[in-house]
Nucleic acid binder design. Structure first.
Lengths: 206, 206, 206, 206
DNA sequence: AATGAATGAGCGTTCATTCAT
DNA sequence: TATGAATGAACGCTCATTCAT
């Protein structure tokens, strides 16, 4: 971050505009994909000039990084609110259902493949992504341990990895406008069953 | 199949040159991502001029489509060879292990996120991808039915969808240079167990 | 006079800040050349914002002009101190040696070619440069006349022109990091000899 | 040089255009200075599009390098033709006169300060410049040795350095539109006299 | 089957400058 | 005095594409 941008956003006007840019950038990424993501298009969508956009984000990479973190923050905020009422098992099923159902939304369906692709090619993106999934798995592992306190920390983390990865994979098949979208409820059912069986009766490696 | 320009001499004319271009294009996609994929770079890697490249593939989209199909064909060929010896259950576990272990390779790790992303934005890509997964699921569903003949066609296909999606999701976590690569064997173990349980004892929606 | 931001605390306000900017601008010119000289870089180096820099120097040309004069003033100040002790001939040799040796320094080596180039393209620079060389020649002509009072004013000025021009030319060859830097002493020797011969025995046009 | 440009200029049309670009680029450099030298302006002057310009010179640095070498080659060609008739001493005076008089021309007056400045900041320019002056000095040293065969190789080279540097310095004072242009003949006179004296009677360091 | 030449659009970035605060 | 915000122009460069050879 350039020194000259240190106190950018000091005025409310600037802060609002910055957030607006991030929203607009996210929309463009989701609508067009990263390979069609350009500063000119972001600027146009935001109703400002390219020069001004680059006043807020001196380099494209700065905007991309900030935008991804902006979206990721939304998901992280969701994780904190995710634990509801009922027994641990009920909570677990509720989480699974929430997360899988979320895949149906356009934002989730399109955003994550872009993130996965980007993280394979752009240094600096990987860390944000890994942090997010790390936090996600921690929430899962916590509930898993409450369901079966006999598991070790390592085992519950291993299960959390398996569950979260399995769920992510469905993005491609039951997401927004995806062919198996109508199978969402069945996926939730199969996932809940098999995940709970693994937690309670499976021989979890460890 | 030679992968790179190392065997350039082997691609002298016609179909060979075409295949050489496709190989080189795939390598570029995997090394740099689609947002860095350009005809100029492909031409340079292939040791020919842009004009000549466009003799073989008149438009960029033609090359991209052909290249994706080229790679997908490799995977489809693998599916046909995948069924080995032993009981259906042993075959199933072998398949799961093969497919999950394959995620560790650079090609698979990087290629699929690009494909998923592209299929969200470029018409014409989606069909190739869907066909591939369709064929993949058919192989799985076949074995599933052999393990538990009591399941309906629909149920076995549903399970195949769930299994394949779950496996794909691990690309992001246990793939080439991914942080949980060392968990691959444990993932195979948890997947095999829970998948088999679902096939044999689960209440598969139907 | 402190050269860089090291003593930034010393430049708190008003004239100090102005001088600090001028120092920093000179350093940038010398380090990067005029074609890489921008207000943004000066501002950053000076630890202030572009807006503030333009409070002191409303237009880029104002800063450039002031900066060049700032450096030129340093050289003019040197000229006033240049005349030392001894006979006129000893003084002359001392001056030649001082000036030629000064070419070895980075500041002189790099600054003057920038000045020469600029004076060819930017109106308003030429005058400052001409004034400086005028003053320089006056000092030389004065000593020349003392060595050979038989010369006319015109002749001594003509010699001063020839001597100063000859010396300036060595900037490109014996300057900072230049290939013939180690010849500096020999150049001083040849220059002193031939210049003195011209003053005393040559047929100076006039 | 990019591989894809290997056989550019294979057609006569391309070769002509390349030379035209170089001429136009030199004119722009001389008219406007390097800090106003842009690919867009070169393209416009050449009557082509920027894209086409960059087909011939993939990077700005390639154009600049080629253009400088193009101009330098002209001067080098002059050096080869410079030696005329008469005694070595007559030849020497003729060379001095030729070279100094050449400073009066706009091309020489403006081109060299740009070259000197550039060579201080852009790697790759320095070598071309050094090579040119090296060749220049070789011609001078040759004649010097013929005038006074008693000098060593080293001494004649040292004199050549001193003479050439001294002459170059006059660019700034007697060049095109420079204030002392009318002194050119007198400079030739003083230079010839003092240089010959140094060759024949001076104590050349060595 | 292959290259040379050219175009036009778009890219990320830098810049001098203006103006409100 | 000094910063934040914004503009408009220009920059070097990459690109897909077209066409003549």
């Amino acid at each position: 971050m350039a020194k000259t941008q240190a106190s950018q956003g000091a005025y409310k006007k600037g802060k609002d505009r910055r957030n607006h840019i991030l929203d607009v950038a996210r929309d463009l990424l989701i609508d067009s994909g990263y390979h069609n993501f350009s500063l000119r298009k972001v600027a146009e969508k935001a109703g400002i000039r390219v020069g001004n956009l680059q006043y807020y984000f001196p380099a494209k990479s700065d905007l991309v990084k900030a935008m991804l973190d902006h979206v990721i923050d939304d998901y992280l905020a969701d994780f904190d609110d995710i634990r509801g009422h009922g027994t641990p098992e009920e909570q677990f099923v509720a989480v699974i259902e929430d997360v899988i159902t979320d895949l149906n939304g356009k934002k989730t369906t399109v955003f994550f493949p872009e993130l996965w692709s980007l993280s394979n090619h752009e240094k600096g993106i990987t860390r944000s992504m890994d942090n997010m999934y790390q936090r996600y798995r921690e929430v899962l592992a916590e509930i898993i341990l409450e369901i079966n306190p006999g598991l070790s920390q390592e085992q519950s983390q291993r299960l959390a990895l398996f569950f979260s990865a399995s769920i992510e994979g469905h993005t491609i098949f039951i997401g927004y406008r995806k062919p198996w979208r109508k199978e969402t409820a069945n996926i939730v059912d199969m996932a809940s069953q098999s995940f709970l069986w693994l937690i309670k009766d499976g021989r979890v490696p460890g």
